[in-house]
Design a protein around this nucleic acid. Structure first.
Lengths: 254, 254
DNA sequence: CGGGGAATTGATCTCAGTCAACGGTTGTGG
DNA sequence: CCACAACCGTTGACTGAGATCAATTCCCCG
């Protein structure tokens, strides 16, 4: 049925999530505007800044961070290729978090797609698809909240890794349950609300149980279903996205 | 300058946040559609449900909850009068949390306002105002994440109470630093990721320090600034909304 | 006036933070 | 090409915040 091979992670994600037609995929691909590269450690935008560019990550990882008054930082979210930046916000609203690059990042401007989906009042398949993506992003944020409330360290780590596993699979960046992961254990700790030391302990523990392997920058999850079971016994039903995605799939063409 | 007296909490909130003109306030008030009452404990919508009504709470409190597989629940957010329900989501996207009533709740439908702000592509003051409200809601969610990561129990409780104090002040439901609060300590615990027992201990402790009084269902914060200082030393800069709101205020009429 | 849910308090235990030390890798400059 | 520094990962010992269990007490409501 679908024969068009998507160029960008965003489009690959759309295809796996929604099974849209070739023409939708092509159109979204073509909306990708000027591309630019940001170096590792660079900040894309700062808290309170206005006038943000709408864009999509085409390669590399970014972090939505938030500096504490005592100098440390929170990590509010992890962004991977195919994720949208400043898409849903109204342009005149200041950002309330910083956005920094974990490694070298390439982005493509997406202003015209945003214009199309949010303001042109065209109710076509493209618009549908973009709204669903935004909703999914919200689901990911809800997941983050769920993860931080009343979950043990082991569950949090497993939960985050399954989240990444799922999202990276969508864009084709995870094969054979292996994916490369540029976050340091420090960053994992800041994302999960755990100390570095404890993150390490948990990772070692999961390795000993043969549930999760993380050497250098590559993650390997031999049996995602098994790892999932570890999390599920005290996790919300949306904990691992299998629950929400099928629900999204149905109304896509409604 | 502004002489129109807003009828609804939503409008009162708008007035304090953005100083809009009388005509905008009047118009938003008039967009309030059919009103209905939900009994304490009732569920407005369930996780996964489609076809949600866009509405605003006019009185009563609601909780955005999420059932765990082991029977307990997370509370993802607390909704008070003036808060929007199903406003930003695309109508065909299923909800990923339940919405339940803490006490008796009255809501008003707001579909026409949503239609106006999100799809009619009119860039007027009303649209601006609604987008800013949505952004503020996102800020509240970010606050929740920040609260759950690396904050002590005492800080979390204080932070949540300041959040409620701030939001209730906006709608005129908090006078003299007193407001009524229908949440049980159980619910507070589920919101903050703490056990009931510990929530109670912290509340007692804050009472002994004369920073926060919670008897029966009323909260009294003698000196919000003092309580704020307790939280701020390890909280993100947006921790208490004073930071974000002035930022929002500027571009409101840009 | 009894019953039940909520609040309060004590005792105990455990998970995770902190401090500290050491091994491994990377990369940078002499 | 080597040496050093800087950072990351790994592990141990100790400590403490907060969970859990259990027992009262306090309200509220029928």
């Amino acid at each position: 049925m679908t024969t068009y091979e998507p160029t960008f992670p965003l489009t690959r994600r759309l295809r796996k999530l929604l099974n849209p037609t070739d023409s939708v995929l092509k159109s979204v691909d073509q909306h990708h505007g000027r591309r630019s590269t940001l170096c590792r450690g660079a900040e894309f935008c700062q808290e309170g800044e206005l006038n943000q560019k709408t864009a999509v990550i085409t390669s590399g990882w970014m972090l939505r961070t938030n500096l504490l008054s005592d100098g440390r930082r929170h990590i509010l979210g992890v962004l991977i290729p195919g994720d949208l930046i400043n898409f849903s916000l109204y342009t005149c609203v200041p950002s309330f978090s910083d956005l920094e690059c974990v490694n070298d990042v390439e982005i493509a401007e997406l202003g015209s797609l945003r214009q199309h989906a949010m303001f042109d009042r065209v109710k076509d398949e493209i618009t549908d698809a973009m709204w669903l993506l935004i909703a999914l992003d919200e689901a990911i944020a809800v997941n983050a909240i769920a993860r931080l409330t009343r979950q043990s360290a082991e569950e949090r780590v497993a939960h985050l890794m399954l989240d990444l596993h799922y999202r990276l699979t969508l864009i084709g960046a995870c094969v054979d349950n292996r994916f490369s992961m540029p976050l340091t254990q420090q960053a994992l700790g800041e994302t999960l609300g755990l100390s570095v030391v404890h993150v390490n302990r948990v990772l070692m523990q999961l390795k000993r149980k043969e549930l999760l392997f993380l050497n250098r920058k590559e993650v390997y999850i031999p049996d995602p279903a098994k790892l999932k079971r570890l999390v599920l016994h005290s996790s919300p039903s949306i904990g691992v996205q299998d629950h929400i995605v099928p629900a999204l799939r149905e109304p896509a063409h409604a």
